[in-house]
Design a protein around this nucleic acid. Sequence first.
DNA 1: TATGAATGAGTCTTCATTCAT
DNA 2: CATGAATGAAGACTCATTCAT
Lengths: 187, 187, 187, 187
Amino acid sequence: MARGNTRQRIQDVALELFAEQGYEKTSLREIAEHLDVTKAALYYHFKTKEDIVISLFRDLTRPIDELIAWAEQQPRTLEAKQEILRRYHAALIGAAPLFRFMQENQATVRDLSIGETFKERMVTLTQLIQEPDFPMADRVRCISALFTMHAGMFFMQHVDGDPEEKRAAVLEVAVDLVTRAHQGARG
Amino acid sequence: MARGNTRQRIQDVALELFAEQGYEKTSLREIAEHLDVTKAALYYHFKTKEDIVISLFRDLTRPIDELIAWAEQQPRTLEAKQEILRRYHAALIGAAPLFRFMQENQATVRDLSIGETFKERMVTLTQLIQEPDFPMADRVRCISALFTMHAGMFFMQHVDGDPEEKRAAVLEVAVDLVTRAHQGARG
Amino acid sequence: MARGNTRQRIQDVALELFAEQGYEKTSLREIAEHLDVTKAALYYHFKTKEDIVISLFRDLTRPIDELIAWAEQQPRTLEAKQEILRRYHAALIGAAPLFRFMQENQATVRDLSIGETFKERMVTLTQLIQEPDFPMADRVRCISALFTMHAGMFFMQHVDGDPEEKRAAVLEVAVDLVTRAHQGARG
Amino acid sequence: MARGNTRQRIQDVALELFAEQGYEKTSLREIAEHLDVTKAALYYHFKTKEDIVISLFRDLTRPIDELIAWAEQQPRTLEAKQEILRRYHAALIGAAPLFRFMQENQATVRDLSIGETFKERMVTLTQLIQEPDFPMADRVRCISALFTMHAGMFFMQHVDGDPEEKRAAVLEVAVDLVTRAHQGARG
DNA sequence: TATGAATGAGTCTTCATTCAT
DNA sequence: CATGAATGAAGACTCATTCAT
């Protein structure tokens, strides 16, 4: 039973349980039981419970940071912004459990000595897909484009239809929102 | 020290703290201290901690239920749907702390023997502002209209500008989304 | 709804619940709810919870005290002792719930500032149906006569047969035990 | 401060206190203090307070189960039944505190998700020392034999005399009761 | 006679965390 | 790498009791 991947397994189980039940309601005992180790074993790999969640965050934020870094170097054209949305959409799908966890545990995340950081990233991202001189409604459109994808990710479960088609539609609407914002600003 | 309103005061303080810190992280001790009564006093007015949150919910859902009931009797015209959005927007603003609590404690709310009910209401509401034969993208637009208002409510804090203007812009975008969905379906 | 019998009703309900669930596990709230009054009302009629149980005891012990008083004036003949058993048997049947309560809450009753008293009475009673110079086995027989009736009262539920016949048999065995004790001592 | 035996020590102290003061009136705090550990330590060894009592029960019932198993394989002769009584008497003496606890906490034990089981065992045992076609009085004698030993165990404290002699007398009377029941049935 | 509102002490239980082995 | 045993702090909840009205 040689295992060198315990740390990873802890993260996996923790993410799953945090997302499903919430951070506060998930005890280390529960995580340990799912892994068939003792609570003390968790402490070999992570200094505290918060540490686990923080490690999860780093994994979540790295792709976003990379996306932001990439976005910041793009020209502020509509086309670039559309690509940002496409990449964000892909990131969202690729890390669904992490985003779900974020979305459902906002209160907890807030004072996790890291929380602000996430909202900051979101703010940065919205700024990268709008322009400062947009009228307010168009700025809202750009912001809404992002949240359409977020909410879509979870609420769309309750809508009938082919998952692939639904995902595509969500992206289409987001892109369209940003596009209209730019046309509105121009026209 | 006027008495007779303790129940109400408990609800007020609880809502404030639940919204601010999250349900799990808010202890009854804390609520009691804020009110300058003992924990036991809370139990005179509410059977359990969950009971407090449930009572809060009833107050939250009543306006929504009324809105839904009203909406169900409207003709399925674009104009009626726009009015639904306007009314929902007003409800959102009128009960901001409650929605904020909901938004930030989704994981908790979920297994609160009442959570499902809320999501059901949201589903119903989205159905009332779309049409079953819409193409998927337009259905997403209608759903997005709702979530634009939700997210807007909280995320817009991070955007500069006159609060009144921001609120108006959020509503405008929401209404526009539904409008376009209907024009798309028609055109 | 004029009531002058609340005190009595409290005693009735309390006895029933104490016997059924035990003294400690029966809360005043529960008693009050069964009576459709508030806890505070109980305090109008009884100073404390213990007070209720003590009042119950007085009712239980009065018949026994009378029996003992009567027994003490009888000649120490076998016939008189048989009559004591018959009367005790009748008392047991007449106040079954009280005895059941006693039997099932011995630990509680013990430090109820009254408990010792009851055991004393039992000791006295056993002394009245035996003789000091009896051999030990015959003294045990006399004591056993009493406990046969006690246990019989509750354990005999688990034995098939006509209740009347069972009761008679229990009394018969008890009387026989004392009778044999006396014959043994004599013979 | 030898460790490794904590679980056993908890059981010992708990039994002592439960028997002395009753289950409900014995708090885990009290048990912990007697052992010079924290309450939480108890929870490392037992899942709940009830769990402690249940573990105590298993130890109590095992000897009885063995006795019953043995008894069921004996011929239904008077001699075998006398031996059953002797063995039950020995078991009673060997596990006096456990029986005392049972006897004095019947109300509590009843809804302990294990209680019924004990009464069942007692019923089984009484059936093994009587015969179905006995007249009622003789069946009562057999039952009484068992309860003579039970009550004797505790009530005999209040009778003067050499403990050894008293114990012997109790057994003698119990055996005699069963013997007479069988002679009566025959004669 | 009774209630509505509240208290203070205490209950069982759970948790994150520690540390010797 | 991991466990067994334990802790201290805190949590939700219950209870007997009180008292002004």
